[in-house]
Design a protein around this nucleic acid. Structure first.
Lengths: 153, 153
DNA sequence: TTTGAAACACGGACCAA
DNA sequence: TTGGTCCGTGTTTCAAA
């Protein structure tokens, strides 16, 4: 579905989407027009989902990062979409995955500091209907954090 | 450090950075030139770290997502930067955080399928010097996944 | 592949609050 | 100091020929 050109285009753009079409074209070994058409197609097909600015977490004062493992009650599991809906509404939760195994969900949560997490934990997350147990794991520092998917092949 | 205008600009751009300066300006209640100057400043100060395209993981055939908790040996912990260096070199590892508490690291890993993860696990991750124990947690589905930091205030 | 019109980024000059 | 309003130049997009 993706040929070598597409992959190279995506590799460039998921590193820096501010580069011009001709710049990308030169880098992947195409001329400007066909490269532009490919990028359009990748956008139309949803393969390029969005083009966003990445903001430095620390520089805007969001110093706390916590992973939370959430278990639902038996009743909560039968109303999973309610839980999902609630989670999507929390700006502090950047990621939430349904997990295989003993814990039901894995969340990555970002707040100003640990006190702010504590408030989010007690006032918001623990009050979501169906939540049985939450295990919080505080991240101390970041070794790697990227949005680049591994597209090499 | 960030006033109301800056915050609004960042909110818009971390959702869609393809919008034009005048478009952003109108949205935040500024005119084009001062808005442009602010965006430049945010880039220069590193608050806007990068501008990237987000690629749909499933549509490019990366179907497996795994969280791995890694513990190091006592010796490994004294050579933490070697471990960090190795991790940064693995394209499959999108995120890696140093954790507080019993597990040393939390990794988010993306591969084509579970078999590919298995290979990465045995052939690569478990062979990194200093690694003592790895607990793998497979993610089944995604409830939320965003790069938008919570900037409301 | 080339071309061209329209839109846009970029950045200076200058004034007003 | 920061925003507003001009202005021009050069680049980029995008859809034609």
């Amino acid at each position: 579905m993706l040929d070598e050109f597409d992959r190279k285009i995506l590799q460039v753009l998921q590193r820096d989407s501010s580069r011009t079409t001709s710049d990308v074209a030169e880098h992947v070994g195409l001329s400007q027009a066909p490269c532009w058409r490919r990028i359009q197609r990748l956008k139309n097909e949803g393969i390029i989902r969005a083009q966003v600015s990445l903001v430095d977490r620390k520089l805007v004062g969001l110093n706390a990062q916590v992973f939370a493992q959430v278990k639902l009650t038996a009743h909560g599991r039968t109303h999973l979409s309610d839980f999902a809906e609630a989670i999507r509404g929390f700006a502090e939760v950047l990621e939430c995955y349904v997990m295989m195994g003993s814990t039901d969900f894995m969340l990555r949560i970002v707040t100003k500091d640990i006190e702010a997490y504590e408030r989010f934990f007690f006032d918001t997350l623990s009050k979501v209907p169906g939540v049985q147990e939450i295990t919080s794991m505080v991240a101390l520092s970041e070794i790697k954090s990227t949005t680049e998917l591994p597209l090499a092949n």
